[in-house]
Design a protein around this nucleic acid. Structure first.
Lengths: 145, 145
DNA sequence: CAGGATCCCGCTAGATACTG
DNA sequence: CAGTATCTAGCGGGATCCTG
């Protein structure tokens, strides 16, 4: 039987998986590839969308505050994201047994450093995003040329 | 009718969308949040998974070479990613009408600068990923404590 | 208030086949 | 070789309900 295309695809996939699993960079890239992760990082880092007016580095936010800051996020994704970040030692979860339970989240040292790295990307965006948009507009206008 | 929860959700979503659309940083974050985008950027930037041994900054790669380098990517995603990057002025697509058509991709200046930003993230990953993994392992072992 | 469990929809991304 | 077009499955992620 013609076991060429399909088989080779499968092989390629295996190699790729093994390959990916080994490389830590890839794992991290995959992690920050999560939209909400970067946003939570930003929010907790202080350079969220909403002007914090408090400076940044590290902020203590409650679950509901994060929920508000990130606006469109569903609690499912927020919780899921926070748990992942907590698991990875990027944020700390603090439960204060007040009358209605209060839970706060804060970046760890590790989280702060990652947030800074993300900030680098944001900085690039702020500097070059208009170029990107210009290119995009130009490209869209080109009909056939 | 109880038009509270649902309605407010909808409103929140609109605000969030408008909000997001305005912020260029978000658009960029969304873009690099694309797994393949970052990988293509790395491959074209020279710090791909496979040791290029050529240094980096800018590399000229053919479609098939990229396909091989990124291993697990489907041609659909690769093409889609490349077209997006081209549209955004991050890569250039060059068609050389040889016998079997030859198409090469290369980073633009803009692309190079973004690739450098991405490299920052990769650098962070290489420095701290083991910490992350350690935290993760520790967290996973905790049963009830 | 914080979040777990569940259902379910939509869109993404993969596989397949075809073209220039 | 370098794509395009189509079909489909899988799961990411939203909404809703419920708990402590």
């Amino acid at each position: 039987m013609a076991v060429t295309a399909a088989q080779r695809r499968a092989r390629a996939k295996v190699e790729y998986d093994a390959f990916l699993a080994v490389c830590p960079s890839r794992q991290l890239l995959d992690r920050i590839s999560d939209k909400w992760v970067t946003l939570v990082l930003c929010a907790l880092g202080g350079d969220g969308p909403v002007q914090p007016a408090e400076g940044h580095g590290r902020r203590v936010l409650r679950y509901s505050q994060l929920s508000r800051q990130l606006a469109g996020v569903s609690q499912k994704m927020l919780t899921q994201t926070l748990r992942t970040l907590e698991r990875d030692g990027l944020v700390t979860r603090t439960v204060t047994p007040t009358v209605p339970v209060t839970v706060t989240y804060e970046l760890t040292e590790l989280g702060v450093s990652l947030a800074e790295a993300v900030r680098t990307i944001k900085a690039w965006a702020e500097s070059h995003m208009d170029d990107v948009l210009a290119h995009r507009a130009a490209h869209d206008e080109e009909p056939t040329a």
